[in-house]
């Protein structure tokens, strides 16, 4: 704690809007504390830019504790930076060394157009969920919660899949910009639970169709998504989705 301040060079992608050409700009920060979070370092940079009459770097963030899924920086060639199992906002500067140059870019995918600088449009994910990522139960239709018994292991597995924060790091990391991990996490959660079983065929088909329509790539099973996923969503979810999909295609009417 409280160790020496570091010098950090930043190479940051600047792009005024979705239509403009972007380019890298270089900035230097001289007083970076190792206990700062990565985003706090950007706050410091922006403060510096604003007081010097420049334009601050636009980036998405909200909760700053790794749960909202809003932050999204591609740092030194990896989504959410060099550490495993965390988001950009949970990355701390102690993961870097004095004098390091850090390259920061937005997520890049055809389906995630850049809005400005490091902000991208991930509404494709919402449209995928809208296509089928739910249980069709209106408010008031529920039975007593304990009348549905769910084995603990099943509940835990569904929960693990449900922890996806929709950040899009999987898409960003994947060489194919595939959204399979994201989609499979939702498909898995709902197909594991008895509540979701009723609609399992329609759901998987609709969600995969929407995913394809959005222009995401297909899966080569490189595993990059899961390796970079801040919630460590497992690849077995993709296998489950493949299974569900083929099954649905073969059995549904």
């Amino acid at each position: 704690m409280g160790s020496e301040a570091m010098k950090i060079n930043l190479k940051v992608w600047r792009q005024p809007n979705s239509k403009a050409e972007g380019k890298f700009e270089t900035y230097q920060l001289n007083e970076v504390s190792p206990d700062m979070s990565f985003l706090e370092m950007f706050d410091v940079l922006n403060e510096q830019l604003i007081t010097d009459g420049g334009e601050p770097v636009a980036f998405d963030h909200d909760c700053r504790e790794g749960i909202c899924g809003m932050c999204s920086m591609f740092i030194n060639g990896r989504p959410h930076g060099p550490k495993q199992g965390i988001t950009t906002c949970q990355l701390h500067m102690r993961s870097f060394k004095d004098g390091d140059t850090i390259v920061v870019e937005p997520w890049r995918a055809q389906s995630f157009p850049v809005i400005k600088d490091l902000s991208v449009d991930r509404s494709a994910f919402d449209r995928i969920i809208a296509s089928g990522g739910f249980v069709s139960v209106n408010t008031g239709n529920a039975v007593d919660a304990n009348s549905i018994l769910i084995p603990k292991d099943t509940a835990d597995e569904a929960f693990a899949a449900a922890t996806c924060i929709g950040c899009g790091a999987c898409v960003a990391a994947c060489k194919n910009s595939s959204a399979m991990l994201f989609v499979s996490a939702k498909v898995s959660q709902l197909s594991l639970l008895p509540q979701g079983k009723a609609e399992r065929e329609n759901r998987v088909i609709a969600m995969v169709d929407q995913m394809d329509k959005e222009g995401f790539g297909s899966c080569t099973n490189t595993g990059a998504c899961s390796a970079e996923c801040p919630k460590e969503i497992d690849l077995s979810n993709i296998a489950r989705m493949n299974r569900e999909y083929v099954r649905a295609k073969l059995v549904s009417k």
Binding site: V135, A142, A145, L149, K152, A155, A158, Q195
Partner: peptide, 22 residues
């Protein structure tokens, strides 16, 4: 009490005991 019922019906994966209850 209705909230818990509703959420479970939606597939919210609350923590459970080995017996399958919440």
């Amino acid at each position: 009490v209705n909230i818990i019922d509703q959420c479970v019906a939606q597939g919210v994966p609350f923590a459970r005991e080995y017996g399958g209850t919440l």
